[in-house]
């Protein structure tokens, strides 16, 4: 038991680093994911995840697999695409989702082109699917820094963000902070996607954001509980995903996302079952209360028959 569940992390530094990196990432990415899903922006998050690729590719061109160069490149590209798609949606007839899709497809194509023309297939795989098991001190520091910034900024804008999500028209009437909160939130999305791409790659990083939020939404309708549950689901999935990757030599980031996917499917089934079970109990309880009031004579007749 110990050998299977604990030893990989206690015996091998690369495994404990990977677990630490994924847990730190889960801590900051899951609340962002909860707000993304509640704002119905899950696909925007996915689009932005793809959009950071050309920035990271330019960073790769300039200084190879340097974490900071690729991070800065990714952040700049993510912000540019988020702003450009918003501007195109405002100033042209294109809808925001189609303009976002257009920009992210272009970005993805440019990014893959740059990396595949100047690097090897291994480099391309590293950027697309991450290198969870190769997180070094620099990468862990970066992930921890981004997580700290995210939690701090989120704590500051939390109240405003909730109001902006629920009733933007009202919030606009009492404060001009709504737009600031919105853009700060988008910046946090980009930051966390960039952090995520070091650990899980550009294609998988958004999974750790959106899936835990989608799972938790099945289990609670309290915002605080949803955010906490999201972290718990993400943390468990990272742990199990890393174990699967270690024991069965699965690719790490898809393993983590697949575990999350299993939680998601299980939640759909369980919540449906629990829901119908609870509804049956509630209707039975209602019947037992209402029956003597609604039709006392029938009960009396029934008793005499017996």
């Amino acid at each position: 038991m110990f050998d299977y569940f604990i030893a990989p992390f206690s015996d091998y530094t690369f495994m404990s680093r990977a677990l630490w990196g994924c847990l730190v990432l889960s801590l900051s990415a899951t609340p962002i994911g909860v707000f993304l899903t509640l704002r119905k922006m899950s696909l925007s998050g996915d689009a932005m995840a793809h959009a950071i690729l050309p920035g990271a590719a330019v960073g790769f061109l300039v200084s190879g697999l340097s974490i900071f160069a690729m991070t800065i490149g990714g952040i700049v590209a993510g912000c540019i695409v988020a702003l450009l798609s918003g501007m195109v949606a405002r100033h042209s007839r294109a809808e925001e989702d189609s303009s976002l899709a257009a920009f992210y497809l272009l970005s993805l194509a440019v990014g893959v082109l740059i990396i595949s023309s100047k690097g090897s297939n291994v480099d391309l795989l590293h950027v697309l699917f991450g290198s969870t098991l190769a997180l070094n001190n620099e990468a862990l520091l970066l992930l921890s820094g981004i997580a700290s910034i995210t939690l701090l900024v989120l704590a500051i804008i939390y109240r405003a963000l909730v109001l902006e999500c629920v009733d933007p028209a009202f919030f606009k009437s009492v404060s001009r902070f709504g737009a600031v909160a919105h853009y700060l939130f988008l910046l946090l999305v980009v930051l966390n996607l960039v952090a995520g791409f070091h650990a899980l790659g550009t294609l998988m990083s958004v999974g750790l954001m959106i899936l835990p939020a989608a799972i938790s939404r099945f289990w609670s309708n309290r915002l605080g509980v949803i955010i906490s549950l999201s972290f718990v689901f993400a943390a468990i999935s990272c742990y199990l995903g890393l174990l699967l990757s270690y024991h069965y030599e699965f690719a790490t980031s898809p393993a983590i996302v697949l575990v999350l996917g299993l939680f998601y499917i299980a939640s759909i089934i369980l919540v449906k079952q629990c829901g119908s079970f609870l509804m049956k109990r509630a209707s039975l309880a209602k019947l037992s209360i209402e029956q003597p009031i609604q039709n006392p004579s029938s009960i009396h007749k029934g008793q005499s028959n017996v």
Binding site: L38, L163, C165, S220
Partner: peptide, 24 residues
Amino acid sequence: MIERQFPITVKEFVAAGSWRKTGI
């Protein structure tokens, strides 16, 4: 214009009316 599925209680929603007094 209001997002009705957002997980927030009536009390929290009404409390938003005091934003100008409480702020962030």
